[in-house]
Design a protein around this nucleic acid. Structure first.
Lengths: 328, 328
DNA sequence: AATGGTCATGAAAAGCTTTTCATGACAAAT
DNA sequence: ATTTGTCATGAAAAGCTTTTCATGACCATT
């Protein structure tokens, strides 16, 4: 339509100053008229780059991940990428299948959240030769970049916070010791804080539920309270667990925080909406997502990473669910 | 490596029975050995199909959308598709840009959530000639398939529910009348229920906040209570609004539901975690997402849609935030 | 024995772009 | 006037598949 070759059109799109002004304008006009848009598949085929990243996530409907993804999405937008999100329902087979599909679609890299990296996963990454970054998880065995919080220390800090508020009989609703990512480290941090401050850590003070859902956490609090009724504070290893615990306490007319204090973990948006508002260990969820994608982008572009394993700082977000026993 | 032509390899992958058994096995072995995976870009280029769908969403970190996306993701998985998710932060320019990028990436279709369809959007869809489905929104002007709930009726039902529980002085925390999707219809339903049951609807009984966030809703409740202190029940037009309202009431020692009842809207997972647990108008969020993607898939595959505009049924999820005044 | 048909396979085009290389025009410099 | 260099442009290959068409081998039928 503009009486030029395909090459020239391509140049107008990628290097406009290489083509004479009159032709350029004619071409631009034709593009407008014909409603032409370049085909990213063909481009990807040549450049071996699709400007698309994959995200493997266990459960998008979980507020925790929702906020992490938000950060990822913003970061991706900033670096001109799109995100394909694969919900894997905590199923290793589905996870591997997703990685394979993403790789076939020639995405430029993948960020994997929350899961420990098993040898079969690593083997697959190696085979596919695809850049990987871990968010809210890490791997000590393999050299994979990661962005997360120091869970052991965070749990330590949460427990110490309760101790500083005068609590001596502290219970914990924890994840599974078999979960090396957000289960075990938090338990270890809890134990260490107790030990450091000369408090006894008998088996009665902790209840373990792999499932972090509200209803199970309600049950967990019930059982914990039954076997450890003298407790004055509870460290729940996620906000949802804390809310389940609070729900049980409310229903049994146990005042929070007057009678029992509760501290959570994560600082999802829910934490600010409960009654009483939840004091919790805050993770920079948005930032973790943001940084993970940024790191992936650097990795893809062959830039030197500042650090392989990034540990972002956590803090205690003080609200109204913990009472200072020293004061009154 | 297997001493065969490219065509034969292709056949093994797509039509295995067209190739002789011995060669087939040799090829399969070579594929294994070489770690070969087909390139979806090249495939997409030929078939004009990428098995990838786009999702335009205003805010992924919002629990409402998180659950809708979960349904979309499951549905996509079922039909062999992946989802590219674009967070648009409620910015029309960014929205249009996202649609353009998705189209360049040759995705097979897009589902758009929650936004009204403006003429410029529609014009773009037409130009790009791309299948579109609307989720949690619809368009009366244009012939675009949609999946949503009847908001006017749902609001009517919520209000009538309160009336049946004996409430006569009912306030509302609403969205903006300028929002034709989830703002105005809910207000209209509220008004209609009042009218139908012979209750007066003065301007004092409603407070309007375009922003649905918790903090603003706290403020909204404060103002509503100030100008309408006789109210015995509040219809909050989202769960987050309801939680903000409850927070204000709690802090001012107004018992929920003993003194003031609150009903929400959406039935996000938060609703079951608050204290008291929130009675709310439930939307089938997961199902809406699921059906929207299913509909898009049908549209793409040229199947006849059962209906252009699907209205899914809502219901009242009874929990503990509404008191029946008739009883005591 | 000759013809027709089936079947497995390979060659090549097409899908859409980018990029390299070649070409020819023109200006400038000797 | 001739050479050198610059610049705009086009042709063609490459990226990786799928699919159509052609080919040749082999079997079966008359």
């Amino acid at each position: 339509m503009a009486n030029v070759s395909i090459s020239t059109v391509s140049r107008v799109l990628n290097n406009p100053d290489l083509v004479a002004k009159d032709k350029r304008e004619k071409i631009l006009e034709a593009i407008e008229q014909l409603n032409y848009t370049p085909n990213a598949l063909a481009r990807g085929l040549i450049h071996k780059r699709t400007q698309t990243l994959g995200v493997i996530i266990p459960d998008i409907s979980n507020l925790f991940y929702a906020e992490v993804i938000r950060g990822m999405e913003d970061s991706a937008h900033e670096s001109g990428n799109n995100l394909i999100i694969c919900n894997t329902v905590n199923d290793q087979a589905r996870r591997l299948a997703s990685v394979k599909v993403l790789s076939e679609k020639q995405i430029d890299g993948i960020v994997i959240t929350s899961e420990p990296i098993y040898p079969d996963s690593y083997e697959l990454f190696r085979q596919l030769n695809i850049p990987i970054v871990l968010a809210a998880t890490h791997s000590l065995e393999y050299e994979i970049p990661s962005v997360r919080v120091n869970d052991e220390q965070a749990a330590y800090d949460a427990t110490e916070y309760l101790i500083r508020k005068g609590h001596k009989r502290i219970g914990m609703i924890s994840g599974s010791t078999l979960d090396p990512i957000s289960g075990l480290p938090r338990i270890q941090g809890f134990m260490r804080a107790l030990r450091t401050h000369g408090l006894e850590a008998t088996p009665e003070i902790r209840i373990e539920y792999a499932n972090y859902h509200f209803e199970e956490s309600y049950e967990a609090m019930k059982k914990l309270y039954a076997k450890f009724p003298e407790l004055t504070a509870v460290f729940a290893s996620s906000d949802e667990r804390a809310l389940g615990a609070i729900s049980y306490l409310h229903e049994n007319r146990i005042q929070v925080p007057e009678q029992v204090s509760v501290i959570g973990f994560d600082n999802t948006r829910m934490a600010g909406m409960s009654y009483p508002k939840l004091t919790t260990v805050a993770q920079p969820l948005y930032q973790m997502g943001f940084q993970a994608v940024r790191k992936l982008d650097q990795l893809i572009n062959g830039k030197q990473l500042e650090e392989l394993r990034t540990y972002m700082s956590h803090w205690i977000e003080e609200r109204h669910s913990v009472r200072d026993i020293n004061i009154n």
